[in-house]
Structure formats: structure tokens, C-alpha cells
Amino acid sequence: MSRIKIMVDSISTIPWETADELGIELVPYYVNFEGESIREDPSFDLKAFYKKLRQAKDWPGTSHPAPQDIEERFGRLSQEADEIIYLMIPSQLTETYNIAHQLREKFKGVRIELCDVGSVLGKLGLVALEAYRLAEAGKTVDEIIDQVYSMSKRSRVFITLETLKYLARTGRIGKAAALLGTTLSIKPIITTQEGMIVPAGKTLTHNQAINWVLKKIKSDLDKFNARKIKCFVNDVDNRKISDLVRARLEKNFQCEEVWQVEMSPLIATATGPGTWAVSYLIVE
């Protein structure tokens, strides 16, 4: 049996300790803040970051993984494994795919598959965790990749923002720009579609947004004639809301897994304070 290792972007918000325990390799992204380039890694002090963020004069920028971060992992994993699957965020949003694509040329002895799942956050995380389990169960790389693409059709991410102004700054607002510039202060809900950021809904309050998301899950369950979900709940410095969202999810659905994790600093930077997100995978 060939040995397969799973690599995934830190933006998946799979907790570092979980990744460590399972042997999933997380690839760190960067936040550029006050002249410093800070790596998303276990030493990243989220509390301090949020505190600084609230007082920030200049809003931080974001950056894809440094090529050496990817190269180092390719090098190390190729010692342990015959095959590597790297699940990453959409090539429409960053350079990561191109960098990894160039770098893998250097590692001829190992098969490296680059998998653009077309999404971010828990949707990427859920799919990566499943990919890991399939590898553990002895599936081949091709079987895993087929599953990855079919699972990405059974999963979604919805991100509820306080405002679109931070996302507009990143230039990655895509079609969600349609929600910009209105007098009414709404809570926009965005999602990803084939790697692009698109508007999904608009509500007046977080509570309405939660109901909106619950309805979407319900209709997806009906569509797939399924009952169970696995999900991620992410928040930007807003534990109160993620607790509430989690409770509502657990009350309304059969959740096989619920991962409640703070937002990746990069996504927090790109979406702004108060943001929360739900990702789910329709199980069966």
C-alpha cells in the first residue's frame, strides 16, 4: 500500500493540534501588519492580533504561503510518503496554485496532486479531513481525488459579514460587489462558487442570518435526501455568536461533527470584525 500524506491550507481552520495529532500538514498563510509579515501558525497570538486590529490605523494586508513554506513541506513529506495530496484555496483568489505547481517539478520521486476545492474555511477543512480518512482507509490517490470533487458538491460555506468594506479592500469581492454602497446597513451573506466570491443573501440581523443559513442546510438535506451533516463554525473574535450558531445547528440537525474554531487570521483580515461563518458537508 502506498503511503499518502494530506496537505491543506491553514485557511481551512483545521486546528493545529488536530492536524498535528492526525499527521495532516497545514500550510501557513500570512498577514502583513505594521511592517511585519506574521505567519498563521500555532504561535500566532489571535487575542493580541484582534486587540491590535481594533486599534489599527492601517488595516493589514494578506499574503499567500511563502514558496519556502511549501517547498519545505514537499521535501519533508516526500521522505515519509509516496504520494501527496495538497488541498488548496481557489486559484482565482491567490498565487498558491502557481507556486505549488512550479515547486512540485523539483520533486520527481513523489507524486504530488494539487487539488483546488474552489472554496475556503470549513468547507476546505471538512473535505481535507475526509480526504485524510479515506487515505487512512487505504483508498488510492485517484479514488480520494474523485471523492474530494464529489464532496465539494455536497458542501457549502456561508460567511456573514458586518460590512463589505474590508472585503472590498482586498479586491476579491467579485460579484458580491452588487451588495456594496447601499444606504441600508445590512448583514451581507457571501459564499464561494467555483472559486469565486458571490453574494448569497442579505439580512437585517445576525439572528435572521442564522435562520437563513439553517434554511439553506434544510433545503440541501432535502435535495440530497440526507439527514446528517458535519460542520465548521468560525468567528472573528465573537465567541458569543459562534456558541449560538453551534447550539442552533445541534438543535436542528443531526451533526456528526461540529468544529467550532476561531477564524483564520487571514480571513478575519479580509472580512472584518464580527464576521462568522458556517460550513457544512451533507453526509448521508
Partner: peptide, 12 residues
């Protein structure tokens, strides 16, 4: 992509 980071990227 109008993401305002070309200068930072080239500097790094």
C-alpha cells in the same frame, strides 16, 4: 486583482 499589495509583495 485590485488588492493593494504589489509594493509589499515586490519588497518582500
Amino acid at each position: 486583482v485590485p488588492d493593494g499589495d504589489t509594493g509589499t509583495n515586490m519588497t518582500l
